[in-house]
Design a protein around this nucleic acid. Structure first.
Length: 419
RNA sequence: GGAGGAUUCGCCUAGUGGCCUAGGGCGCACGAUUGGAAAUCGUGUUGGGGUUGAUAGCCCCUCGCGGGUUCGAAUCCCGCAUCCUCCGCCA
């Protein structure tokens, strides 16, 4: 939810953000009106309640003669209060609905437009110019005995897979490298629950436009998380944090579950787009004033991981229309996929400013001692999809795969994976 | 799955329809006292919302959450959540 004070003071900022996202501007004025209505309703109910309160006290002290008259007035007032409170409840509900309809206000500098309108910040590394036709990760991985998608489909359906033998070891190694790096950087490692309550899923903003992406357990009223961002954001919900020592950083290790509804036919080969994968995710709580710097740091840690697996990539500043509800800015690192001759997302770091924290009621105590809404950010350190980039970029002409140095300890010291 | 108990201002606790504008203790903060400290004394100490130029003042809400009864609810009634104990079931 956006800050209503910002909205009241400069509605034009919010309208400009909506324009850049290519979204409806009407919702901004609807929100302004709903805010106005709610405040009027609250003021009315408050003053009636105040009257009722003082009258109620007089009834208690009244002598018999006055009592009946006072009681009659109090009864009328009680009815008035009830009506005013009803109106207040209606106005509040309408405000929440209007509030939810407005996505986060983008940060200055975010490129306007849709998926294609990203700005490239930098390129790192060179796509290899080998003289053989690159195999794709499925062919490589299957031949090397690292993964098995056929049996994944037999057991669980399409977009499921087994990581087998050294493939499983390679993933564990990758995630372990990410964990080690995060812990060295001061993150607290967390293994979170992957089933969460509706209000937590709602609070992180995933039940809006992404609702069809989320697995839901109807019998238990729980949701399977698509990323550990969800439980990590919920971790401090309804709390007032001490952020005086700087940002609080958590690294979440979890399996992630996504329905991938509406992506039929996209990335159906291999393990690029799957229903279940593993991930190490960074999550930061900080003061809003620190959020932009923290965003750069998260990007830096992602790039450090990408350097460790030695794949070429580019960094993009994602366009406003492709940001999602909660993010005010998002940087993606896209690795080169030789089989596709294209850059594909490996990491994504979002600055959600106070948007997510406002919904989840996550605050911190400011220098003046008053509670303020915190900022939240998240970013990817490693996922199953990274195996795709590793296999494809490090493949040799004979179908073997060179193991990046950082991962060798996790595959028995092997420099090369061979059939 | 069944039975019982609990949930009050950071912590402990008092409170069975109007005197609760929620009392006391601990902790914490500030001040007094002191050469400095301990002890002691004093003051303050949940959070949200509205009004406002204001982090002043005033007003409303907040006793786990949501309803209800009543002129009036921490207190009575109903539902829910969480925690604890015991029984059963599963491992």
């Amino acid at each position: 939810m956006i800050d209503l004070k910002v909205l009241r003071e400069s509605p034009e900022t919010v309208r400009a953000s909506q324009r850049a996202r290519g979204e409806d501007i009407e919702v901004v004025d609807a929100l302004l009106a709903a805010d106005e209505r709610r405040r009027a309703a609250v003021a009315r109910a408050d003053s009636l309640r105040g009257e009722q309160k003082s009258l109620g006290k007089q009834v208690g002290k009244a002598r018999d003669g006055e009592r009946d008259e006072l009681l009659a007035r109090a009864k009328q007032l009680a009815a008035d209060v009830k009506a005013a409170e009803g109106e207040q409840a209606v106005a509040e509900e309408a405000l929440v609905a209007a509030h939810r309809a407005v996505p986060n206000v983008i940060i200055d500098g975010v490129p306007a437009g849709g998926e294609q309108d990203f700005a490239v910040r930098e390129h790192v590394g060179q796509p290899s110019t080998s003289d053989f036709a690159p195999r794709d990760h499925l062919e490589l991985g299957t031949a090397l005995g690292l993964l098995d998608t056929e049996r994944g489909a037999k057991v669980s359906g399409s977009r499921f897979y087994f990581l087998t033998g050294l493939g499983a070891q390679l993933q564990l190694g990758l995630l372990q490298v990410a964990v080690n790096q995060a812990v060295a950087a001061g993150f607290t490692l967390m293994i979170p629950p992957v089933l969460v309550r509706p209000e937590i899923m709602e609070g992180t903003g995933f039940l809006g436009e992404h609702a069809t992406e989320v697995y839901r357990l109807r019998d238990d009223d729980l949701y399977l998380v698509g990323t550990s961002e969800v439980p990590l954001a919920g971790y401090h919900s309804d709390e007032i944090l001490d952020l005086s020592a700087g940002p609080r950083r958590y690294a979440g290790w979890s399996s992630c579950f996504r329905r991938e509804a509406g992506s039929h036919g996209k990335d159906v080969r291999g393990i690029i787009r799957v229903h279940q994968f593993d991930k190490v995710e960074m999550f930061t709580y900080c003061r809003p004033s620190e959020a932009a710097d923290e965003h750069d740091r998260l990007l830096g840690w992602e790039e450090q991981m990408l350097a460790a697996v030695e794949v070429p990539y580019r960094v993009i500043d994602v366009a406003a229309g492709d940001l999602g509800t909660s993010a005010a800015r998002k940087f993606d690192c896209e690795a080169w996929f030789p089989s596709q001759q294209a850059y594909r997302e490996l990491t994504s770091t979002s600055n959600c400013t106070t948007f997510q924290a406002r919904r989840l009621n996550i605050r911190y105590r400011d220098d003046d001692g008053r509670p303020r809404i915190a900022a939240t950010l998240n970013g990817t350190l490693a996922t199953t999809r990274w195996l795709v980039a590793i296999l494809e970029n490090h493949q040799q002409a004979d179908g073997s795969v060179r193991v990046p140095e950082a991962l060798r300890p996790y595959v028995g010291g092997r420099e090369l994976l061979t059939p």
